[in-house]
Structure formats: C-alpha cells, structure tokens
Simulated scan of single mutants.
Amino acid sequence: MTEQLFQIGIKALIQNDEHQILLLKSQDYWDIPGGRMDQGEDIEAALLRELHEEIGVDHIANNQLWDVAKAVKQLPYDDMMTSLMLIVYHVQLPADQIPRSCEPGVTLHWVSPEQAADYLKNKYPEAFRQAIAQLS
C-alpha cells in the first residue's frame, strides 16, 4: 500500500456585516485567505501569520473551526504529488482590522456566498462549496 502525503493549509472564512465573503483574486485563481503551515508551527500561529502576510491583519476577534476539506487538485512536492488538507476557521475581525492586499498582483473582493461557492470550484470540493453558498 502506498501512503499518501498531505500538506496542511490553514484558511480563514471571513464575512462582513452584509454576510459577504472575503476572497483573494490572483491572475490564476480565487481563494480565501490563508496558506500552508510551516514546519513546527501550531495551527493558531499559522492562521495569524497567514492573515498578516496576505491581508495585513495583526489580530482577530474570534475564530471557530468551520470545516476540514481535501483540496480538489494535488500539488507537486519534490518528485511526487501531495494532497492539501484545508483546515478552515470562521474568523471574525475586530473593527480596527481592515483587510488589504499585501501581495503583488492579488486583489481583495467581498462577494456573496453564492458567488464565493462558484469562484472556489477549482480548489474546494462540492460539499464545502455548498456549505459556503448557504452562509447568510
């Protein structure tokens, strides 16, 4: 039996007062904020680091585990392919934390849950996207 190698991604599902979802758009794809855990890093530290790196957030008001999903596409790692397990937190930002793009070529967009579900189809599984579409 061949073992499957996984990388871990920590993601933040952020909604505004109008229940829109924050998405990042690069020229290649749409995504929710977050990224891969570094070796030796704990989950909360990875979440805060990624939010700081991607959207300039220094602290959060609240986070709650929302979902764990396996990414649709595999990723290259050395001479093999790996799967990406995504640990997604529903994150509430305090009023003094205004998201902004901190990465060149990446723009931020607030979109409806239905739009988010559609835009995320290249990375996230169907059940995950259906759950996002139901958020209000």
Score class of each variant (00 low, 15 high):
3 E>R: 15
4 Q>R: 14
5 L>Q: 15
6 F>I: 05
6 F>W: 15
7 Q>Y: 10
7 Q>P: 00
13 L>A: 06
14 I>R: 05
15 Q>I: 07
16 N>K: 05
16 N>T: 02
16 N>C: 07
17 D>T: 03
19 H>Y: 10
20 Q>M: 04
23 L>P: 01
23 L>Q: 01
29 Y>T: 08
29 Y>A: 10
30 W>K: 04
33 P>L: 04
33 P>T: 04
46 A>V: 03
46 A>D: 04
48 L>D: 06
49 R>K: 09
50 E>Q: 14
53 E>W: 03
54 E>S: 03
55 I>F: 02
55 I>H: 02
55 I>Q: 00
58 D>C: 11
58 D>H: 14
58 D>F: 11
58 D>R: 13
63 N>H: 13
63 N>P: 00
64 Q>D: 07
66 W>V: 06
68 V>N: 02
69 A>Y: 02
69 A>E: 09
69 A>R: 04
69 A>D: 08
69 A>G: 12
69 A>P: 06
72 V>I: 10
72 V>N: 06
74 Q>C: 13
76 P>H: 13
77 Y>H: 15
77 Y>K: 15
78 D>I: 09
80 M>H: 14
80 M>E: 14
81 M>V: 10
82 T>V: 15
83 S>E: 13
85 M>K: 12
86 L>V: 13
89 Y>N: 12
91 V>G: 01
92 Q>H: 06
93 L>V: 07
93 L>I: 09
93 L>S: 02
96 D>T: 11
99 P>H: 08
100 R>V: 09
101 S>E: 04
104 P>T: 15
105 G>S: 07
109 H>T: 01
109 H>R: 08
110 W>Q: 07
110 W>A: 03
112 S>E: 04
112 S>M: 06
114 E>K: 08
116 A>G: 06
118 D>K: 06
122 N>F: 10
123 K>C: 04
124 Y>R: 02
128 F>V: 02
130 Q>C: 02
132 I>M: 03
